[in-house]
Amino acid sequence: MTRGDSAYHRAMAEANRQSVLAAGAALFLENGYDRTSLARIAQEAGVSKATLFKQFPTKAELFEATVLAAGSTPDLVPLDVPTDDFRAGLVMLGRAYGDLLMRPEMTALMRTVIAESPRFPELRTRTFDFGTLPVLKALARYLRDAHATGVAEIDDPDTASAQFLGMIASSIFWPRLVHGTWSMTDDEREQAIEEAARTIEARYAAS
């Protein structure tokens, strides 16, 4: 196999993967986890069942990949996050996280996770690696850099990240997820993010 052939096949494999993920997202949201079959996803994606099974041997693995793909949006990651103003950097990243949570497909897929996991052990036992999402990777990098440069004193970036994201999600995401008619204004959302940033700043900013 030549180098060109290898690149071609990698490109085809990635195109097939994206087609499968798009078809999976549409069918999972339309029919739920139980009534969505891998065979139907393969048909809608325009790939063979063998191609699908090669990348996603089980429906649980495909569903996990579908949820993570819905949040894999590098364009949400802010550029030029300030490194000398800890709170301002947190606010910028908090807004990006809020934008991610407000994506309709993220809300819909998380509702599916909550609704389906009690009935399907293969979903209940999976640990979705949300730390791979670009926004959350950017936050983890920001916290590590803040500690390294002395802007903040953060011995455990994972804990600090969970605290920050948890405050934001509990204010702007979970009420919306549980109560479909719940809403908040842009100003209220901004206030929730800024309050979360101030709390983290008060806890971790260097003296």
Rank of each mutant, 00 (worst) to 15 (best):
M1T: 02
T2G: 15
T2C: 13
T2F: 12
R3I: 09
E14W: 09
E14Y: 10
R17I: 01
S19Q: 10
V20C: 03
V20F: 03
V20T: 03
L29P: 05
E30A: 04
D34W: 12
R35L: 00
T36R: 02
L38F: 07
I41Y: 03
I41H: 04
E44D: 15
E44K: 09
A45N: 03
A45C: 07
L52M: 13
K59V: 02
A60S: 07
A60H: 02
E61C: 09
E64L: 13
T66C: 03
L68I: 10
L68R: 03
A69H: 08
A70C: 13
T73P: 00
D75C: 00
L76T: 06
P82G: 07
P82A: 05
D84G: 10
A88L: 11
L90K: 04
V91W: 01
M92P: 06
R95P: 01
G98Q: 08
D99P: 01
D99M: 11
L101N: 10
P104Q: 07
L109G: 01
V113R: 06
S117W: 11
P118D: 12
R119G: 13
F120G: 00
F120N: 01
R124P: 08
R126Q: 06
F128H: 10
F130H: 14
L133T: 05
L133S: 04
L133P: 05
V135R: 11
L136V: 00
K137P: 01
A138G: 06
R144T: 15
R144H: 15
A146Q: 08
A146V: 09
A148D: 14
T149C: 07
G150N: 10
V151N: 04
V151I: 11
E153D: 14
I154E: 09
I154D: 12
S161E: 08
A162N: 09
A162C: 05
F164R: 02
L165H: 10
G166K: 08
S171D: 13
S171W: 01
W174F: 12
L177C: 04
V178C: 06
G180N: 11
G180D: 13
S183T: 15
E190L: 15
I193A: 03
E194R: 15
E195K: 04
A196F: 10
A197I: 02
T199R: 04
E201I: 02
E201F: 07
E201K: 13
Y204F: 14
S207N: 00
